[in-house]
C-alpha cells in the first residue's frame, strides 16, 4: 500500500510538468490551430529565466580586504553581491537563495514578450499553411532558440538549487498513519505539484469566469462567427499564445531545482508532451491535463520493480504504447471534441 502511494506521488510531479506543457500546447492548438514544436523551447527559456535571475542577484563587486589573506598570502579579495549592500547581508542572502521562486515573477513579463513576439513575428503567417509546415518551422525555431541559449550559457547543466528551507523531504507516511520513513517525498516536488495545480486552476478559471475567457472559448468553438460579430479575435488569440508561453515558462522555472537546466531539456520534454496532447485529445484542455497526470502516474507505476520483473523494459515504453493504443482505438483521443482533427 505504501509503495502504491509512493508511486502515485512520484508520478504526480512528473505528470504536473507534462500537464503544464501539454496545457500550453493545447491552448495554442485550440485557439490558433497551430502545432507548436517550439513549445519545449519555451519551457527551456523559462528555466533559463531562473538561471539569469540568480546570476543577476549574485552580481558582486570585488573589494580587497587587507586584514585577511588568502592561501597564497595575498590580501583576500572579497566579493560582495550588490543585494547584500542594498538590503543588508541577511535579507540579501535570502533574496539570492529564493531566486527560483522569485524567478516566476521575473519570467512572466519575459515569457509574455517572447510569446507575443513569436506569434506576431512568425506564427501568424502560418495559420493557413498545412500542419506539416507549422511543425517544420517551429521545429526550426526550437533549434535556433536552443542554440542561442547554448551560445550564452554553454552546453553543461547549470545547477539552480531551491531555497534551503524547501530542500529536505517530507515524511508523507507518518501523516497517513504508516510507519515513519516509508513514504518520503521531497518538499520541492510537492510544491511543484501544488504550483502546477494552481496554475492549471487559474487558467481554467480565467477561461471560464471572465468575459475575455468567454470570448476566447467562443472563438475556439467557431472563430468565424465570433469574427463576424465584430470582435477582434486575432488579438485575443495572440494574448492566449502569450499566456500559453507563460505557462510553459513558469513550468520551466519551477522545474530547475528538480533537474538542472541545460539547453536541450525542452526537446526532451517536447516529445512526451506531444504524446500527452494527442492522448488527451487535440484541442481539449481538460484532456491535456488529465492525460498529463495519467501518463505521469502510469510511467512511475511501470517502473516499480514488481512490474519490470514481469515485463522487462515496460517502464521505457509505456507512454508510447498507451499513445499508440489510444490513437488507434479512439481517433480523437480520450477527451477530444467531436469533429476536431479526427482523420
Amino acid at each position: 500500500m505504501d509503495a502504491f502511494i509512493l508511486q502515485i506521488l512520484n508520478g504526480l510531479d512528473k505528470g504536473s510538468a507534462y500537464a503544464l506543457i501539454a496545457l500550453g500546447l493545447t491552448l495554442i492548438f485550440g485557439t490558433l490551430g497551430v502545432v507548436n514544436f517550439a513549445h519545449g523551447a519555451l519551457f527551456m527559456l523559462g528555466a533559463f529565466c531562473a538561471v539569469v535571475l540568480s546570476r543577476i542577484l549574485s552580481i558582486a563587486h570585488v573589494t580587497v580586504d587587507p586584514t585577511r589573506t588568502d592561501f597564497l598570502g595575498n590580501p583576500l579579495k572579497v566579493s560582495t553581491p550588490y543585494v547584500h549592500e542594498w538590503f543588508g547581508p541577511e535579507a540579501g542572502q535570502t533574496l539570492i537563495e529564493w531566486s527560483v521562486p522569485l524567478a516566476i515573477l521575473f519570467s512572466i513579463p519575459i515569457m509574455v514578450a517572447v510569446g507575443f513576439a513569436m506569434e506576431r513575428g512568425l506564427i501568424k503567417y502560418f495559420y493557413k499553411r498545412p500542419h506539416a509546415d507549422q511543425i517544420l518551422v517551429t521545429f526550426g525555431l526550437a533549434i535556433v532558440l536552443q542554440e542561442v541559449i547554448k551560445y550564452f550559457f554553454g552546453a553543461n547543466p547549470i545547477p539552480t538549487p531551491a531555497p534551503d528551507a524547501l530542500v529536505g523531504s517530507f515524511d508523507f507516511g507518518a501523516l497517513l498513519g504508516f510507519d515513519p520513513g516509508t513514504i518520503i517525498y521531497p518538499y520541492w516536488r510537492l510544491i511543484y505539484f501544488m504550483f502546477a495545480a494552481a496554475v492549471i486552476a487559474a487558467v481554467f478559471a480565467f477561461l471560464q469566469f471572465t468575459t475575455f475567457g468567454m470570448v476566447v472559448r467562443a472563438g475556439m468553438a467557431d472563430r468565424e462567427t465570433v469574427g463576424l460579430l465584430g470582435i477582434n479575435i486575432d488579438r485575443r488569440f495572440t494574448i492566449m499564445f502569450a499566456i500559453a508561453a507563460c505557462v510553459a515558462g513558469m513550468a520551466g522555472v519551477m522545474y530547475t531545482p528538480i533537474n538542472s537546466p541545460n539547453y536541450h531539456m525542452g526537446m526532451d520534454f517536447l516529445v512526451l508532451s506531444f504524446v500527452v496532447v494527442v492522448v488527451g485529445g487535440m484541442g481539449s484542455l481538460p484532456g491535456a491535463v488529465f492525460a498529463g497526470f495519467l501518463l505521469g502516474v502510469l510511467e512511475s507505476f511501470a517502473s516499480m520493480p514488481a512490474i519490470t520483473t514481469v515485463i522487462p523494459g515496460i517502464n521505457q515504453v509505456i507512454i508510447y504504447l498507451v499513445a499508440i493504443v489510444i490513437l488507434l482505438t479512439r481517433p480523437r483521443g480520450l477527451m477530444g471534441r467531436k469533429g476536431v482533427m479526427e482523420e
Binding site: 500542419h131 511543425i135 516529445v271 506531444f274 504524446v275 508510447y320 499513445a323 499508440i324 482533427m341 482523420e343
Partner: peptide, 15 residues
C-alpha cells in the same frame, strides 16, 4: 492515421 497523428505515431515507434 494521417497528419500530425501519423507523425506522432512514427515518433512513438522510433522512441
Amino acid at each position: 492515421r494521417s497528419g500530425i497523428y501519423f507523425s506522432i505515431l512514427t515518433l512513438a515507434f522510433a522512441q
